[in-house]
Design a protein around this nucleic acid. Structure first.
Lengths: 195, 195
DNA sequence: GGCTAACGTGAGCCCTGCTCATGTTTCAGG
DNA sequence: CCTGAAACATGAGCAGGGCTCACGTTAGCC
């Protein structure tokens, strides 16, 4: 991570260029040379900030995650939704909104497929996300924040991620029916689990 | 697709080598040069059978799909399981078995992530799989094979795929608790849906 | 045997990820 | 203001990957 001011700007520019390019050419088509060219940063500088191509994409994923958690935390605090389905609504809707508005979010969200352990070196990505989400929601639901609950959140997160990916594969704006189905899956599962 | 005998053998050897290598070096680390070397086939010949690297992996995914559908169809016919949860059991268990025994299955199953439309050019992979699974199960359940049901199968498939991927990320033999959770998700969702 | 189409081959082209030797800038402590 | 060291900047070039293509070999029909 850079500490000086110009470096920090370049760092952000590189992430922005990376996100844009992911939307244009996809994960496999992304080249570090083109990212550097877009950001108007020499290739050597890119490699001063990021260990390698995966590190670059991982940093983008981390930025996405922080942004997502911030937005969800804000809305949960403000709206204090009721019960599981309220939290599911907020979380899914916020994910959908980001998917529609944040460049590259559809390709890497919190970590590109196949490529893991980029957010926390010892955890796989969605586990890291689940951990953060769990501490966010446990207080709201009053649910015991135990091992059972942890598993439930992890499973729910995997399902949500995959069904929403499907929703956006069908329709670039996100197929409404499938977004509704996503919530249905989560509600059915999480409600059944509480017995 | 090759037609002569020696070619057909080489074709299979290439897929086998590809599957092995995927387990060893992962999706990103797979090189066509190494696949060809392993299969003792010149690199030019590989490109006579497969349009490119993705075509090679796509062919492996197609072979996996046929194998999976064959196994599931066999077991469903033989055991005639009761209700939704019976079918879920058989299907998930068969997937888990293949995941444990078929080389490369954990990496590509029916199509590597991010990379789509390799089984059917117009459909995304899991939609193609869902279509095949649907015609397999519709007769058994007596369920109307309608649009509603199609959506349900697609959603269920995405969830199953992602939760099982998680189960095998946690434990190379497949975490038993998460495999159970996978069935739970599917049962909760599919039962709730029938109302 | 002759002929054509299918199959077989691997040196090498082009492009990519990444490095590294060499400079330049920043800034704390004097 | 000076000075030194640490942080930052740079881009030619290397290693290695995907894929091609011009040229050889075989299969199988007449």
């Amino acid at each position: 991570m850079p500490v000086q001011k110009r470096s920090a700007e370049r760092f952000e520019r590189l992430l922005d260029a990376c996100a844009e390019l992911l939307d244009e050419v996809g994960y496999a088509g992304l080249t570090t040379k083109e990212v550097a060219r877009r950001a108007e940063v020499p290739i050597g500088t890119l490699y001063q900030f990021f260990s390698d191509r995966e590190g670059l994409i991982g940093a983008l994923a981390a930025r996405n995650l922080e942004s997502f958690l911030g937005r969800v935390a804000d809305r949960l605090e403000r709206e204090e939704p009721e019960g599981i389905s309220g939290i599911v609504d907020v979380t899914v809707d916020e994910f959908v909104t980001m998917r529609r508005t944040i460049a590259g979010f559809g390709v890497v969200d919190f970590g590109a497929a196949g490529q893991d352990h980029i957010l926390e070196p010892t955890l796989d990505n969605n586990t890291a996300v689940a951990g953060r989400l769990r501490s966010l929601t446990a207080s709201l639901t009053g649910t015991q924040d135990n091992a059972e609950f942890e598993v439930a959140v992890r499973v729910a997160l995997e399902c949500a991620d995959s069904v929403l990916k499907l929703a956006f594969r069908i329709d670039p704006q996100g197929d409404a029916q499938l977004i509704a189905e996503c919530k249905r899956v989560l509600n059915s599962y999480l409600n059944d689990r509480r017995r």
